[in-house]
Simulated assay, not measured.
Amino acid sequence: MQSEREASGSWHTSMTLDFANTDQITADFAGGSVTLQPLSASLTIPEEWTAESSYINCVITLKDGRKVYSDYYEGDYSNPNDTDNLLRGIHALPDCENDMLEQYLPIAQAFVKSDVTRGTQTQILCYGEPIEPTEVAAVTLYRFAYRGENALGTSGVQGYDLTDTMVLYQG
């Protein structure tokens, strides 16, 4: 909105999270860490894991069975092709072969920050709704490698195959 007046000052707002405990949980693993907070999860991983020839997905499984999938963003999935592609990616993950989208909580935003001096990349997944860190049952990381443009691939994305599965955190 345009105005001829100049505004200055600051403002803030606060939101109470109705949780028994909102302390963050951090778990370290070889080469990185995962930090769980009520509004987001941060995954710090070695940068070579996300090189041009590979990519990663993450699944956060809650104790009530719901899941957060790093590629499932809030948005309009009314397009059957988008939904099919999303499910194809989910179904390529071990233990997710029969999952439906209704089991998954979308993320609102995802951010990536590289630290060149440490050789790491941090992915921040902002949840679509608050999640108490103590309600997280597991955080699993899946790494896929590029096998060639014409390779069938097992990832749901042509040319990529699942190479590694790592449980980063278990509650």
Rank of each mutant, 00 (worst) to 15 (best):
I25V: 15
D64C: 01
Y72N: 05
Y72Q: 01
T50Q: 11
I56W: 08
P38A: 15
S53M: 11
G65S: 05
N79K: 11
A51N: 14
F29L: 01
T26C: 09
L62E: 09
V59T: 03
D28A: 10
D64G: 03
Q37G: 14
S70I: 04
S54G: 08
Y69R: 00
D76A: 11
S33C: 12
I45C: 11
T50D: 11
D23F: 07
T35M: 04
I45V: 15
I56N: 15
L43N: 03
A30C: 05
I60W: 00
L36H: 06
G31R: 01
A51H: 08
I25W: 10
Y69S: 02
L43Y: 10
T35G: 00
N79Y: 05
W49N: 12
I25H: 13
T35W: 03
Y73A: 12
P46R: 09
E74W: 04
T61F: 04
C58W: 02
S33A: 14
E52Q: 12
S42R: 06
K67R: 12
V59Q: 01
T22N: 13
I45P: 06
I60G: 01
S33N: 13
W49V: 08
L62K: 12
D82E: 10
Y77S: 01
D64P: 06
S42D: 05
N81F: 13
T61H: 08
S33P: 07
I45N: 06
G32R: 00
V68S: 05
Y55N: 08
E48Y: 12
S42F: 04
A27Q: 13
N57R: 14
K67H: 05
G31K: 01
D23A: 15
V68G: 08
E52H: 04
S78V: 06
A30W: 01
S54A: 13
F29P: 01
N81I: 13
I25R: 15
N21R: 07
D82L: 12
I25Y: 10
E48P: 03
E52S: 07
S78F: 08
D82T: 06
A30T: 10
A51D: 15
Q37F: 13
C58Y: 05
R66P: 13
D64H: 01
S42E: 09
P38Q: 10
E48F: 12
P80W: 01
L43G: 08
N57E: 10
V59H: 02
G32Y: 00
Y69H: 08
T50Y: 03
T61D: 10
L36Q: 03
N21M: 03
S54T: 05
G32C: 02
T22P: 06
Y77G: 01
G75R: 07
Y55M: 07
S78Y: 06
I56Y: 10
E47P: 04
S70Y: 05
Y73W: 14
E52P: 00
G75W: 08
I56F: 09
A27N: 06
D28E: 14
E47N: 13
N79E: 14
E52W: 00
E52A: 09
Y72G: 04
Y73M: 15
R66W: 03
S70N: 07
E74L: 11
E48Q: 13
A51C: 09
W49A: 08
Y73C: 07
I45Q: 12
L39Y: 02
A51T: 11
S78M: 08
E48C: 04
G32N: 00
S33K: 12
K63I: 13
L43R: 02
Y55Q: 05
L43Q: 03
G75A: 14
